[in-house]
Design a protein around this nucleic acid. Sequence first.
RNA 1: CGGGGCGUAGCGCAGCCCGGUAGCGCGCCUGCUUUGGGAGCAGGAUGUCGGAGGUUCAAAUCCUCUCGCCCCGACCA
Length: 574
Amino acid sequence: MKTSQLLIPTLREAPGEAETVSHRLMLRAGLIRKVASGIYTYLPLGLRVIRKVEQIIRDEMNRAGAQELLMPMASPAELWKETGRWDFYGKELLRFKDRHERDFCLGPTHEEIITDLFRREVKSYRQLPLNFYQIQTKFRDEIRPRFGLMRGREFLMKDAYSFDRDDAGARENYQKMYDAYHRIFTRCGLTFRAVEADTGLIGGNSSHEFMVLAETGEETVVYTDSGTFAANVERADVLPPDSVENTASLPLRSVSTPNCRSIEEVTAFLKVPSHRLVKTLLYSTGKETVAVLVRGDHAVNEIKLKKALGVPEIELAGPATVEKATGAPVGFAGPVGLKGIRILADQAIPALKNVVVGGNQLDTHYIDANWGRDFTADQTLDLRNAQAGDPSPKKDGILKATKGIEVGHVFMLGTKYSQTMNATFLDAQGKECLAVMGCYGIGVGRSAAASIEQNHDDRGIIWPYPIAPFHIHLIPVSQSDKTNEMTVRLYAELQAAGFEVLWDDRDDRAGVKFNDADLIGAPFQVVVGDKGLAEGVVEVKVRRTGIKTRVTPTELIQHLRSAVPHVDAAPSSH
RNA sequence: CGGGGCGUAGCGCAGCCCGGUAGCGCGCCUGCUUUGGGAGCAGGAUGUCGGAGGUUCAAAUCCUCUCGCCCCGACCA
């Protein structure tokens, strides 16, 4: 392709809206443009990258025995009402009515649609197992879209759904997908890690997320060096404390703590470490208000809390609710003498002695409060996030934490959907059985964005060869006939040799072309100019290393062919 | 949803506090020169100052409403 045939609106300065590296570079290199919050147009260069990622996914999905189909974006409310997700999915589900006032939504995921297809078309165990996938635009009306393609509202996703006769079959499909995902992300040039994860709105029995390790990741992963344990903090179990503190209980005392509302303020004022505090958080479930006790240095895990309460949504109680429940303004809630609401305590709480808690009165805390004597809870269980320094739940060491970008997620669904939607088949005995399902997603655009997060320098993108929009950026830097003839010749030869070539045929200065080439990030740059040609050579620059090699035009293709296998091997400046 | 911020030329921004009819850099167009890491000179085009209302002789600037976008938080107890 010639640049004159392609819209590649590179930007010297990044638009102010972009914060993260990948978002900035995608805008600057002319890959995407925003249409509305979380909604983007893929420009020609961006689309080429997307297509590369898609093709890798197709290859590996097909290889793993899945078959491609395409489901609609819009789906009728009835199917969603069947599984209950019409209500359960909340505001993320973008709903609308057609001209007949029928309810529809834009598909955020497709379990309902595929399960409906299955129950209509599949009758016999002889047809199983099955695994369907599609690469399709999804719409989720995110609370807060951000970081360009990283968290859009409209985005491309590969989703796959497997149907099996039994659990063993489902596990086999799950494993196949798990392995396929490893190959896909490896081929995309990503450094990633599979971790145990929560199943969220999809539901099911268990799941793994594929996390690209990057500072800008929105997820936190905890893991052990031994490699046997890795999980999203949302999901990671926390072991109960192994012993109760062995200290004599001191008498309970009420102290004045003027204006000390936060953990920081209280610890600073009373000069006690935060793990000597118990914080009391009030949550509203919609039906009731509950108090949750966790240690001052711990964070409530709202997913664990929701499960404990058996409700889909919770939120921190507002100031009015807090005053009503505790009799004090926000900042002074505590379990001592707290009546009329349910109290849930993290399992770490009973092991503590002589702690600081809120006094349920303005500017007041209790010190030396003790479990059993001064306060207790209706329930004690694991309610907090795992954090670095905790012992691993697999007892294989101490946890470390890192940030990750979730690019893929595989779920064992079990019969959650086949049950509610009555997706059954007849087994060899003629007995009606529920299909055992799995589902498997990959964020296509997010994978591309994650790749930029891991592969860039201060000059621009450094695409891994398999997903680069072009393999070679061909850059003539002189406008002589000699240079032009050589460029035309190399353009033809390189393409004939199977390379995807972007020929910068603009009438621009060399510096402009070099800078755009570095920004766009093709793995190789081939520079043709009078200076080199006078000595019978052209120049090959490897984008990742910046190393330039002078080769004769005849050697060029051989040189590139032998360089391709190593081009992604060198570490980026990151 | 809460908090903060921003909407002025294609992009990045100034002007707003203290009202007087819009500017800078880059980009874009024309010409000449230049041509191996974002060229020089000369000339030129481009704005309903996000939108609506109000105050005023006069509004980008003050007031009200509204729309859009961005950031932070949702661990504050």
